[in-house]
Design a protein around this nucleic acid. Structure first.
Lengths: 277, 277
DNA sequence: CTAATAGTGTCTATTAGACAGTATGTT
DNA sequence: AACATACTGTCTAATAGACACTATTAG
């Protein structure tokens, strides 16, 4: 369609036919991460923490009975961001949650129904905010990643049910500046959501080092021990106390509250220091 | 649509109506960056380098006569990646160029014609590969970013024409973990491509520090001086020679060629060392 | 010889890693 | 008292920043 015949932008827009190009569907999918604590049987020990992700059991075809990320179609009169917030509200009944865009997955056959593009997001919440607000078909799964010889195995454990899949990182260019994940083995997660989970995990692992995302995962007031556990569970490795405290020192401020009753020296409660450095 | 009436996934898919949700259009837009050199009048001085971006003059409405990023609609039977490569080939006549996904822009009114989602990409090329292969309506613009009091001003200069716009970084959350750009002033760049350019600039500025993307911008064999200029022009600051050489030492290997005829000590030519460290 | 960049040695400052020690609650 | 974590001091290793110096070419 040459448009040189039109006299103005207005005239052009008036005559424009939006159906001249084939159109497709867009969904938004959300990796909702939080850190959960399991009480230990030793009253003195700290509770063990796990990174966990919210999954939804599919009640319809396709992939009926499989687990997938919460998500939904982006309406024609709705920005991607608004759709994402709408779905977050639906699944967790919470608003004002931290969300960032992760990646747009656009392979032709990623949805067996038809051509669907999916823009994936990462959301982080403090699980204490969430009581019984979960959608009925949603469940938290502990995320246990393990490096294996041919890639990365991720085990998801809800307590009742254990899922697992295996992915591999594929480097796209000779300078190793870009990569994507590829499924090696996946029988439990619907669509390409195994790849989304792997990408999201990597994103927060990187971003926790150079931003303050960790503080989205703790309550308003927290002990430095809890905070350190958040870092440890996301990074998948232990940190040395003095080094950790040096680094976060400037990001937090002490309150005059203490956490007592834990069977050992009480720890000071801190809060996130806005506008630090 | 409840699908419990279907007996199997196959039966469901057979009966599925892809038009039950409103569909939209998806485009891919590409920020093609390269580093160009302007010969200086002093035969001894190194040529001055500029980061440059390829823009296309719009020949049709909307935004007729304005400049924008090369891009186009993603076909219904085409992955986002394939569409991006197709457009790169069309605009530069080159294949096997480095491309990575940048961000998906999904505001409702970003295209006056209709609802269009755009997945933006960053491509990096060595401009020496490009002779007269450019599409007739495409032109390289030097990118000159400048921090101003209320944001970031970016001047684009093709030699014949100077464009400029101003954007601001908006932090989305109190922990400053996520942000997006917002237009302050833009009369020269079509759509929201001013925001795409600002985001892309930031992406390569970050990524040049922790990946090897810089090597996509130089020829097969290069001097360390050239390579350092690439880093300097992307980072927008000067680097100290010894520090720079320490850092890239492990990423490069010396060839037995030298670059002579420059009015000063010849410099050794290096190449990228694959599989380093 | 001179201007200009190529390339190296070394000193210093900053940051990260490691370990050992002291402090203080609960049972 | 004993356990478990809270919290701190300090030494060491590694990395980044700065500067001064030597090397080598075309003109």
């Amino acid at each position: 369609m040459k448009t040189t015949q039109y006299e103005s932008e207005e005239a052009f827009l008036k005559a424009y036919d939006p159906n001249q190009f084939e159109r497709l569907s867009l969904t938004t999918d959300i990796l909702i991460f939080s850190v959960s604590s399991e009480k230990t049987n030793n009253y003195r020990k700290l509770s063990e923490k796990f990174l966990s992700v919210l999954l939804v059991k599919r009640e319809d075809y396709p992939y009926k009975g499989k687990w997938c990320l919460p998500g939904g179609f982006v309406g024609i009169d709705e920005s991607i961001e608004d759709a994402t917030k709408r779905i977050l509200k639906k699944e967790t009944n919470l608003e004002n949650i931290y969300v960032e865009q992760l990646y747009t997955f656009g392979e032709i056959d990623r949805d067996p129904r038809m051509r669907v593009i999916s823009t994936a997001h990462v959301a982080l919440i403090d699980k204490n905010l969430l009581k019984d607000n979960l959608a009925h078909n949603a469940k938290w799964f502990h995320v246990i990643p393990k490096e294996v010889s041919d890639g990365l195995e991720i085990v998801l454990d809800s307590g009742d049910e254990v899922l697992s899949f295996k992915v591999r990182k594929i480097v796209n260019d000779s300078m190793r500046s870009d990569y994507r994940y590829q499924t090696i083995e996946n029988t439990s997660i619907a669509f390409d959501h195994d790849l989304v989970i792997a990408s999201g995990l990597e994103r927060i692992k990187n971003k926790i080092e150079y931003t303050d995302i960790a503080f989205h995962l703790v309550p308003e007031e927290f002990t430095l021990g809890e905070l350190q556990q958040i870092y440890e569970v996301v990074l998948g490795k232990e940190l040395l106390d003095p080094a950790f405290r040096r680094i976060i020192k400037e990001k937090v401020e002490k309150t005059n509250h203490f956490q007592t009753g834990e069977g050992h020296r009480p720890s000071a409660l801190f809060r996130y220091k806005k506008n630090h450095q």
